[in-house]
Structures are given as C-alpha cells and as structure tokens.
Amino acid sequence: MEAATGSPPGYGNNSDTEEDRDSETDFEPSNLGTKEYWEDAYRKDLETFKDIGNVGDIWFGEESMSRVLRWMDKAKIPENAAILDIGTGNGAFLVEMAKQGYRNLTAIDYSPASVELARNVLQTEDITDVTVKEIDFLNSQGKLKEFDVCIDKGTFDAISLNPDKTKDGKKIYVSALKDVLKCKGFFAITSCNWTKEQLLDRFSDGFEFVQELSTPSFQFGGKTGNSVAALIFKRVH
C-alpha cells in the first residue's frame, strides 16, 4: 500500500503541540486503513495500466522518491544491498531504484492487485531481477529476513488508520521491522500523518535516529511546519 501524491483524504500531519506529540491518541479510523480499500484502488490502477500504460499516482510525489535516493547515494548504500520496499503499491519506487543500479530489491504488499500491478510495471520497464511478494507486513514473521535497508512511504500511515487494530498494528509493525532489518541496517520512513517527534517516539525502542530528510515546509499563523516527515533510523540492539 502507498499514499497518493500529496495528502489523501483522511491523512494529514498531526498537530505539533507538545501535548499531541506526547499522546498516544490515534486518528479517527478510516477505510484508508483497510485492505479492501487498497485492493479496490489498485485493481482500478491495474486496469488503467493495462489500457493506457499509466502507472497511477506516485506516493507523496516524485520528490519523495528522489529525496530517499539522494540519501542512499550520500550514505553510500551498496548496489548489492538487500533492500525491502514495504507496501510497494504500483512499484514506481522499485523502478527508480533499479535504474540507479540497485540490484537486490524485494517488495511486498498485502494487496494482490498491487503485486500484479507492480510486476506488470517492472516487466514493461524490462526489469526482471526484482522480487515482488504478496505479504502482509504485520504477518510477515519468518517470511522476510536480513535486509540492509527497509523503506516505507505511507504504509505505516495506513496501518495507523486501520479501524480494527490501530494501536496493536503500530506495535506489531515495529516488532516486524526489528525482525526483518539487520543490526545497523537503515529504515527510511516518509509520513504525512505523524510528526518528526512522534516518529522518534514510536521508533525509539531498537532504533537510533540518524537524520531528517528535507521536505517542503509551510507557514501558518506565524509558525513554520512540514506536511510530510521523512526520517532515517538505524537498527540497534
């Protein structure tokens, strides 16, 4: 699963007050957190791609991919590094990473239509050495291991909106991330629901903050804020 360009309905960075940053209050549940929503969305995108070759929306825009790729280059992530794209959506980011020379790419999504769409997009781009699997990250224990880099653009956001298991889902996500990421491996997350401070708190156990990536800012009421947070963490024991 991925978030569409910009901030989809039901998304939006939390208030940056101290009270909100420290609270565990979730957003109102939304169908954006359900598998049914994303399966329907990617089924339509798949039909459109087969008809006219349009891959659909790029989550958070093309710049969201470029900023992570720039970080990967500056961090000297090896081309053979094992990289996991969590909630690959239409697979657009896989294409960009492959074009940059990364050749040990794995992608997962719990939507069968997403997996089929991503595979079709990769095939059209003549990219054949990428593994795309139908896996629910929250139920991935034992199915994924030993990644050097894990990347999330919007999946943690969607999990946070799940009507059935918002709090449990976030905890399970962190546990699953610890399980699949190597010690000293990197985690890159882009979110439009959570502030930098909230993400630092959520990923404080087992992860070390590395850096914040620059994202567009806005001014309102004399204060400056960001509609998107993009952070890099390192897995530690």
Score class of each variant (00 low, 15 high):
A158W: 03
A3G: 14
F147I: 01
F187C: 05
T124V: 10
D179L: 10
C192M: 11
T215M: 15
S217A: 13
I108L: 12
F93D: 11
L117S: 06
D168A: 11
Y102G: 04
E212I: 05
G222C: 09
I83V: 14
P112C: 07
D73K: 15
A82Q: 06
F156T: 12
F186T: 11
S160L: 09
P112Y: 11
F233L: 03
A229G: 01
F60M: 09
S140A: 15
M97H: 04
D26N: 08
N80I: 00
R70W: 03
S66W: 01
D205K: 10
L144P: 12
K223G: 05
S114M: 01
Y110Q: 14
D126G: 04
D22W: 00
N80H: 07
K234H: 03
E212D: 14
V180W: 14
D148P: 01
R202K: 14
V228T: 11
A75S: 13
K143Q: 14
P8Y: 15
L122N: 07
G222K: 12
T224F: 07
A98L: 06
K178T: 02
M72L: 15
I172N: 10
N139G: 07
D157C: 02
L144C: 08
G87C: 10
P216R: 07
I135N: 04
C183L: 15
A107Q: 06
D57F: 05
L213P: 03
S66F: 01
C192P: 11
V130L: 12
H237R: 07
D136P: 04
M65G: 12
L94P: 05
L32N: 09
D136K: 05
D85T: 00
F27K: 14
E208G: 03
L138N: 00
V149A: 05
F186E: 00
V55N: 02
D179H: 14
I151Y: 07
N104V: 00
F27S: 02
S114Q: 10
N104Q: 09
G91R: 05
L46V: 00
G89F: 06
A113W: 02
A230Q: 13
V95E: 05
S114Y: 06
E36R: 07
D168P: 02
G154E: 05
S64Q: 03
L177G: 08
K44L: 07
V95S: 12
V210M: 03
D85H: 08
L94I: 10
T190Q: 15
K35Q: 06
L122R: 00
E28P: 06
